[in-house]
Computed example of a mutant assay.
Amino acid sequence: MKNHFLVVIILINALLVSCIPHKDTLYFQNKSNATDSTQTIVENPKPYRIQINDILNIRIKVTDQDNVQIFNPIGEGNLNATAGERAYFDGFTVDLHGNIRIPELGYMNVLGFTTEDIEGLIKDKLLEEQFKEQANIFVTVKLTGLNFTTMGEIGNNGTRIIYKERVNIFEAIANSGDIPDTGNKKDVMIIRQYPHGQKIYHIDLTDVAVMNSPYYYIQPNDLIYVKPLKQKAWGTGTTVIQNIGAIATILSLVTTSILLLNRI
């Protein structure tokens, strides 16, 4: 009988250990020695520099707008297309050599430039080849939304676009259905694209200091991967209440087995 009792105790301890700690489910914990969370200062990120496969939205305005119709997309096409699809067809995609092709102006290398830099390049080229200062040229260059992909233990896997110039990791996760309790918030992987290849970065979303990480703001074409916690692989509940049900089921099975063995 003592052996049976020992087995039950071991099962209960194992299930309690398999619960996900409350601190592993919380964001923005102050893990430093400082107690004043207001000391955390989020620095402005460096301007994003254009990479291969980025899609740019370019608009050119002058005093006589009829003179720049050839530069600006006319917006025709499938009216049922999504905003992302229209951006793909109307935008200027950066090719494998880092170039975009603009009507009348030809190819222009934009790899590694900021959108502000590109505005200046286009304006200078227009003044040099097409217009005079009196045309009052106004050029805007924007990324056609910030697209990223989520995988793993997160609400919704897949690729999505947020139409903002800056998106932090929490905004990206919120737009993807959040990370469930069974997701590892302490070690979220960001796989980032570069002209020479890919790099993998690891960030801890449970630590408020993540806001000062150079990877706090995501970049176009980032892949965000959330690993599952071991508790999910074990198949146990995530809370004590859920594990009580599992314990009750196992106890019932153990008790039934003991009674049957005693009858033999």
Rank of each mutant, 00 (worst) to 15 (best):
Q219P: 04
V226N: 09
Q130C: 10
N262A: 09
G197W: 08
A14E: 07
I179M: 09
V240F: 14
V226T: 05
V141A: 05
I58Q: 00
G75H: 00
V62S: 01
I102A: 05
V141G: 02
R59A: 02
N57A: 06
I179W: 04
A87R: 05
A174N: 11
K227A: 14
G235N: 10
Q65E: 13
V8W: 07
W234P: 00
I9G: 01
N67L: 15
N243W: 03
T114P: 13
T114D: 14
N99W: 02
N57I: 00
D36A: 10
L127G: 07
G112R: 12
N157C: 12
P21G: 00
Q193D: 15
L126Y: 06
K61P: 01
T159Y: 04
K232P: 15
A209Y: 02
L79T: 12
Q231Y: 08
G120V: 15
K132I: 14
Q231G: 10
N13K: 10
C19M: 13
L11Q: 07
G245P: 06
K227S: 14
G177S: 05
V110S: 05
Y88N: 07
T144H: 03
I12A: 11
K186I: 02
Y194I: 02
M151W: 08
A135Y: 02
D178K: 09
Y107T: 14
T25P: 03
Q134G: 09
Q69C: 08
I154G: 13
N44Y: 07
M211R: 05
I58A: 00
V94N: 08
M189L: 15
L79G: 05
N3H: 05
N175Q: 13
G145H: 04
G98F: 04
I52N: 02
T206D: 02
D181T: 09
E85Q: 03
D66Q: 11
K123M: 15
I74T: 03
F28L: 09
N53A: 04
H22N: 15
K230G: 08
E43G: 08
G235W: 08
A246S: 13
I247P: 01
G120S: 13
C19Q: 12
T238C: 05
L79Q: 11
A34I: 12
N3P: 04
E85G: 02
A34R: 13
V42Y: 00
Y107K: 15
T144R: 03
K142D: 13
T149W: 06
T159D: 02
N3Y: 07
N212R: 14
V110A: 07
G152D: 08
T149R: 10
I203P: 00
P220V: 01
I200F: 08
L16M: 14
K185A: 07
N109I: 06
I60C: 03
T63L: 08
L253H: 11
I244D: 06
Y201F: 15
T182G: 05
E133M: 06
I264A: 04
I244P: 01
P228Y: 08
F28C: 10
F138S: 15
D24T: 13
E171S: 02
F131R: 01
H4L: 12
